[in-house]
Computed example of a mutant assay.
Amino acid sequence: MSLEFLTAWNQWISNHKELLTLVVVPVVTLAVTAIINRSAERRSMAAAVEAEHRAAKERRLQLELSRRMKLADFRQNWIDQLRDDFAVILAFVPEYGKRDSAKFAEVNERIQSVLLRMNPNEDAPKEIFEQLLKLINEKESEKESIAFDLMNLVNLYLKSEWVRLKKELSDYKNLEESL
């Protein structure tokens, strides 16, 4: 039976060659082309989605780096201003008894600026505040010693802030993994 079917099928194909050439071959070609195009479109869409995800991740990374650099600039400016304020305060210690001078008003303003700029809940600023109060309230004979202690505390504090700033800036390597 199968041999008869194949013979009949072969006979039909031989009799209808033109029909097969004009209709079946283009239909098969169209079907194969459609399947190939659909597969290529899926691969293209997957690649586009992956590229979009990479671009979005890169934008988030750049935005976060930009934010951190801006914060680092603010912190560096804050450290510089603290250093300048303490330089003026400590330079005035020998003249502190002359409370009527214009320089005294500037130093007082710098002290207030320092007090407002530092976080009173942290340990190092608390110690600095205490030394500033001692500097203001102690006798003239003890001010030099207190000023020296204050300078050491401020140097340690500014150094720790500088180290903190550098650490935050160096953490950008871990940033890419976290985004």
Results as ranks from 00 to 15, higher is better:
2 S>T: 15
3 L>K: 09
5 F>S: 04
6 L>S: 15
6 L>F: 06
8 A>F: 10
8 A>V: 07
9 W>F: 05
12 W>K: 15
13 I>R: 03
14 S>F: 06
17 K>I: 08
17 K>T: 08
18 E>G: 03
19 L>P: 02
19 L>S: 10
21 T>G: 01
22 L>T: 11
23 V>E: 08
24 V>T: 09
24 V>F: 00
25 V>G: 11
26 P>D: 09
27 V>G: 01
28 V>M: 03
28 V>R: 12
28 V>Y: 12
28 V>E: 05
28 V>K: 02
30 L>Y: 01
31 A>L: 08
32 V>I: 00
34 A>R: 03
36 I>Y: 03
37 N>W: 13
39 S>P: 03
39 S>C: 04
39 S>E: 12
41 E>N: 13
41 E>M: 15
42 R>T: 15
43 R>H: 15
43 R>V: 06
44 S>G: 08
45 M>L: 14
45 M>I: 14
45 M>N: 04
46 A>G: 07
49 V>M: 14
49 V>R: 08
50 E>T: 12
50 E>V: 07
51 A>Q: 10
51 A>C: 11
55 A>Q: 15
59 R>W: 07
63 L>Y: 09
66 S>L: 11
73 D>K: 03
74 F>R: 09
74 F>Y: 11
74 F>W: 11
75 R>S: 09
77 N>Q: 13
83 R>S: 10
84 D>V: 15
85 D>I: 09
85 D>T: 08
85 D>E: 07
88 V>K: 07
88 V>T: 07
88 V>C: 05
88 V>D: 10
89 I>Y: 01
89 I>A: 05
92 F>M: 12
94 P>V: 08
97 G>Y: 00
97 G>P: 05
97 G>W: 09
99 R>S: 08
100 D>F: 01
103 K>I: 00
103 K>V: 13
106 E>I: 14
106 E>M: 06
107 V>Q: 00
108 N>P: 09
109 E>T: 14
112 Q>W: 13
113 S>Q: 13
114 V>H: 02
115 L>N: 01
116 L>W: 15
117 R>I: 04
118 M>Q: 03
119 N>F: 15
119 N>S: 13
119 N>A: 13
123 D>L: 15
128 I>Y: 02
130 E>L: 09
130 E>N: 13
131 Q>P: 15
132 L>M: 06
132 L>Y: 02
132 L>I: 12
133 L>E: 14
135 L>S: 09
136 I>R: 11
136 I>S: 15
137 N>V: 00
140 E>R: 13
141 S>Q: 01
141 S>W: 12
142 E>M: 12
143 K>D: 10
144 E>P: 09
145 S>F: 07
146 I>M: 01
148 F>P: 02
149 D>E: 03
150 L>D: 00
153 L>N: 05
154 V>L: 06
156 L>H: 11
156 L>A: 11
159 K>T: 03
161 E>T: 00
163 V>Y: 11
163 V>P: 02
164 R>F: 01
165 L>V: 14
166 K>A: 00
166 K>E: 02
167 K>Q: 12
169 L>G: 03
169 L>Q: 14
169 L>D: 07
171 D>Y: 04
172 Y>I: 14
172 Y>C: 09
173 K>E: 03
175 L>Y: 04
176 E>C: 08
176 E>L: 13
177 E>K: 10
